[in-house]
């Protein structure tokens, strides 16, 4: 194609200028309009791009901050396709916790046992420095919270991007490991952003956790288990 005598020199020059982004906005728009009807112009652009691509070899790599990937994945995949089954899972533990006082009593005991002080857990080496993200969202998007867990510090950064607590109510964040009862991470701050701490006994297998947000009285659930409606859920993803 390079040797195609039919290609007007002007088109070849314009294609190169377009590929290099030398043209003004209007000139770019005019060239793009022509390109729609002329595949040959597109090929000329690709030729220039390929010709200059090796120049990018000299550009030094720059490691992006980890928050970029977290935000990217949250934007693209925030609404997990498994949302229905997550809601079902949450429904199951809700049923278990509210249907029978006996079950609630058992759960209270378990929560006390779980929070008893023990030897400081050793973080698995593979997870040291790992980041995990969860977009905790209502089915209708009326509430969305992005949670990012940093295994280095055990902290969970939360950013509420949609919705808020009802008047005189609080939003409480819970973590659920498998079929175990939910464990409170605390009440979400009134402001949009804040930081909570993941209980140490949940730090072993973070990527299998489900996070959920329930509607609670100010100050949080008085019982240690969710007492109000579950408003939003999200799966934790290893990034």
């Amino acid at each position: 194609m390079t040797s195609d005598p039919e290609t007007p020199e002007e088109d070849r020059a314009l294609a190169a200028e377009y590929a290099l982004r030398l043209l003004s906005k209007d000139e770019e728009a005019a060239f793009e309009a022509r390109m729609l009807d002329d595949r040959h112009l597109e090929e000329l652009v690709a030729e220039t791009v390929n010709q200059f691509a090796p120049l990018a070899d000299e550009i030094a790599e720059e490691t992006p901050s980890r928050a970029v990937k977290a935000a990217l994945l949250a934007d693209l995949f925030g609404e997990a396709p498994a949302a229905t089954s997550l809601w079902e899972r949450v429904g199951l533990w809700r049923a278990a916790s509210f249907a029978a006082t006996a079950a609630a009593a058992v759960m209270a005991v378990m929560l006390i046992t779980q929070s008893a002080p023990g030897p400081a857990p050793q973080l698995p080496a593979a997870e040291r420095g790992a980041l995990f993200v969860s977009e905790i969202a209502a089915g209708d998007d009326s509430l969305r919270v992005l949670a990012v867990y940093d295994a280095d510090t055990g902290s969970v950064q939360v950013n509420r991007t949609a919705g808020s607590a009802a008047p005189d109510r609080a939003l409480e964040l819970w973590a659920i490991a498998g079929d175990n009862p939910p464990v409170s991470l605390g009440v979400l701050p009134v402001g949009q952003k804040g930081q909570l701490v993941l209980p140490e006994n949940l730090r072993g297998d973070v990527s299998s956790l489900v996070l959920a947000i329930s509607d609670e009285p100010l100050g949080g659930s008085p019982t240690g288990a969710p007492t109000g409606a579950v408003l939003a859920v999200g799966q934790v993803t290893d990034i």
């Binding site: 990018a56 550009i59 790599e61 720059e62 490691t63 970029v68 990937k69 994945l73 990034i239």
Partner: peptide
């Protein structure tokens, strides 16, 4: 997609920067 990001994001950030 996650693997692709890990493999290429540093170069692409360099280009944008």
């Amino acid at each position: 997609f996650s693997d692709l990001y890990d493999a290429t994001s540093a170069k692409l950030l360099g280009v944008a920067l």
